[in-house]
Each structure stands twice: as structure tokens, then as C-alpha cells.
Nucleic acid binder design. Structure first.
Lengths: 191, 191
DNA sequence: ACTTTCATGTCACCCTGTGACATCGACTAG
DNA sequence: CTAGTCGATGTCACAGGGTGACATGAAAGT
């Protein structure tokens, strides 16, 4: 028999989310999370660099998905077509996780510190996507701006997606956001 | 004679920046900053909600400038014209503060926590600008997207502006970023 | 003069985050 | 089978960020 119960990180995440939902993020201490997961405070910090990070483990996965989708777009695709392909992949990923995403989004919405962490994860995501575009021979600053724009569209669509009930609606929301953005930037009037 | 030396907040900011430059942000404690300013740790936290905030007092001023410029744009101006007017005002403001901005940018660049704070300030700025656009009868989501786009252009231009020597170059950098963004979004190839 | 106001100080305290070292099952070599 | 190593976790002590409660005393009002 194993000395330790498996998946310590997973248990910490589950315990953390349950406690955050019940008492709020601030009112939950790391020691409480660790105890609820059958571990100690010190062990918590071996898995997560800080208390916030327990909610952001999935960001890495999202970033990989973006990067792979951009890299895997057809050879002749331009910057925005590659971004569009990534939006497809992302919309599919999230369709399976609507319920979880909502809970998590609610916890984050209630805490400025968590919003800060979310924004920096998004910024890192934009950097990674920009790198993926550069690897496709798209020069700067077009790569950086296209990446940032793709993330803006995704973020805006995500915000709306968690506020409504259809898990499959993300792609449509993305398309709306993208169309609006194009209209605004080129100076036409939006819908 | 006054009981306390005036401008406690200002003294704290100066002391903080000097110490951050000398020893780095992490290695500087709040107690050190306070003592250097002739105050106590407790007093520091009466002026700044946390240690980071001592570097972001000016963000409020920047936000007001944006909002006023957007509000004050000609009545017939569309979303992007109003943004453009704001970019003018912002470029002027920063022209006088190139040296300070560089020091501050360097401190922030060295610290992830500070970058987080910077990003959330930028997000709040985008929200405030979006509100100002809505006040001009620009409907959502155009208002939100135009605001976010304006901030993206500003941020990109700012990044380049602190890396070069001409304090007056910001407006030109903004124009370049904006032109690049337009080209990317509408699908043409950039320079 | 008496009171009130208010910026600052003092003190005690909790929580986050980290370094150093201990523990002990599991795995591996021989 | 035994010895030794490894790796995940625990224990302990501590620095630093951040806060609540109360004290102080000059200045400003009345």
C-alpha cells in the first residue's frame, strides 16, 4: 500500500474550491485547505507557489492548447486565421467545463487579488501566442498585436459565456466579439 | 510649527522608490520605507493599502486624464476618434515624465507581483474608458472593445517609449501601433 | 480655556511564505 | 534478505505583510 494517498495537488484544489465557495477566499486559510485535504500547510506550498495559484493550475493547459492550435493551423493561414483556429479549439475545451468554470469565475470575481492573477495569466498567454505566431513567420509587431487581439476576443467571449447557460455557445460569442472588434477598429458603426 | 512634516504620502513614495532602486523591491521592507520617510509601518498602511500600491498612486491621475479626454472629444467624434483624442492627451502627459517613468518601469519589470498590479490598473483604466464612451452614446460591446483596443495601443506604445530616449516620441509610437493593429485585424499584411 | 479633530504612534496579533531538518515507506542493488 | 537511497510529507522556527484597538498631543474651532 502506498504511504500517501495519491494526487495531493488534486485534493488540495478540490478542498480549496469547496472552502472558497463556502467561506470565501479571504476567510479561508492555507492551513484549513491543507487540513481538509489531509496535508499540512508546508505541503500546500510545495505544490502551489502561493494561495492564489491553487485556482490557476489549469491555465497552463489552456496555454498549451492555444499554442498548439496556432502552430497547427494550415501553412497558408495568416495571423488572424491562425488565431481563429485557436478560438475553435478553445471553445471546444471549455464546452465540457461550463459548470466548473462558472464556480471558479464567481470566486475570482469576488476577489481583486485573484483578478490580478487572472490578468497576468492572460498576459502570459498572449505572449505565448505571440511567440507561436512568430514561429509562423509573422513579424512583430503584427504578431504581438494579433495575439493580444485574439486574447481580448477570447476574454470578452468568456465573460459572457459564464453568464449564460449554454455550454456550447462560446464559439458564437467569440464570433460576435470578433466582428464587433473589426467594426470598431475600422471605424464603422457596430450593431 | 506643524506637528508633522507635510506630505507623508509623497515622502513614502520617494523613500520607497529610492530603496527599491538600491536594494530591489523584495529586499525592501515596509518598515524600512517608513523609517526612511520618518514614519512607522502602521502609518505606511494608512496611506497605501499594500506595499505595491506605493508605486501606483499615479494611475488614478492617468485614468482621470483618459476619461476627461474621451468626454471632451468633439460631439460628432466616433469611438475611435475619441480614443485618438485621449491618446494625444496621454502622450503629452508622459512627455514630461520620461525619466521617472523609466525608473518605475524598470522596478516593475523586475517583479511579477508588480506586473500583476500594473495589469489590473490597466484593466480598470479600460473599464473607466469604456464608461466614458458609453456616456457618449456608444453602445456596448463597441464601447468595451474600443476602450480595450485603445489601452492595448497605449500599452504597446508605452513599452517602446520607455526603451528609447526621446521623451516626445510617444505619439508617433502610438500611431504606429494603431496602424499595425488596424492592418492585422482587417487581415492585411503589416509592414 | 475647553473640546474636538485628526495624523501619527504603540502594541499585539494573524496569516502567508520559506528554510532547515526529520521521518519513513518504497524501490533498488547486491 | 539487507542496506542504502530516494522522495513525499511532516515539524519547527521565523521574517515580513497587513490589521484592529487604543494612546497621544498639536492644531483648530467655539
Amino acid at each position: 500500500m502506498a504511504r500517501w494517498k495519491p494526487d495531493a495537488a488534486g485534493r488540495l484544489i478540490e478542498a480549496a474550491i469547496a472552502l472558497f465557495e463556502e467561506h470565501g477566499y479571504d476567510a479561508t486559510t492555507v492551513a484549513e485547505i491543507a487540513t481538509a485535504a489531509g496535508l499540512t500547510k508546508r505541503t500546500f506550498f510545495r505544490y502551489f507557489t502561493d494561495k492564489r495559484e491553487v485556482l490557476f493550475r489549469g491555465s497552463r493547459e489552456l496555454q498549451d492548447l492555444w499554442v498548439e492550435a496556432v502552430a497547427g493551423a494550415p501553412a497558408q493561414a495568416g495571423a488572424m486565421e491562425a488565431i481563429d483556429a485557436a478560438l475553435d479549439a478553445v471553445a471546444q475545451l471549455f464546452a465540457e467545463r461550463h459548470a466548473f468554470a462558472r464556480v471558479r469565475a464567481q470566486i475570482i470575481a469576488a476577489n481583486p487579488e485573484l483578478q490580478e492573477r487572472e490578468l497576468i495569466k492572460l498576459a502570459k498567454l498572449a505572449d505565448a501566442v505571440a511567440d507561436a505566431l512568430r514561429a509562423r513567420e509573422i513579424p512583430d509587431p503584427a504578431a504581438a498585436l494579433a495575439a493580444q487581439t485574439g486574447i481580448t476576443v477570447f476574454h470578452e467571449a468568456f465573460r459572457r459565456w459564464v453568464q449564460q447557460d449554454d455550454p456550447g455557445a462560446m464559439r458564437a460569442l467569440m464570433n460576435e466579439s470578433l466582428a464587433d472588434l473589426r467594426a470598431v477598429v475600422s471605424g464603422h458603426h457596430a450593431t
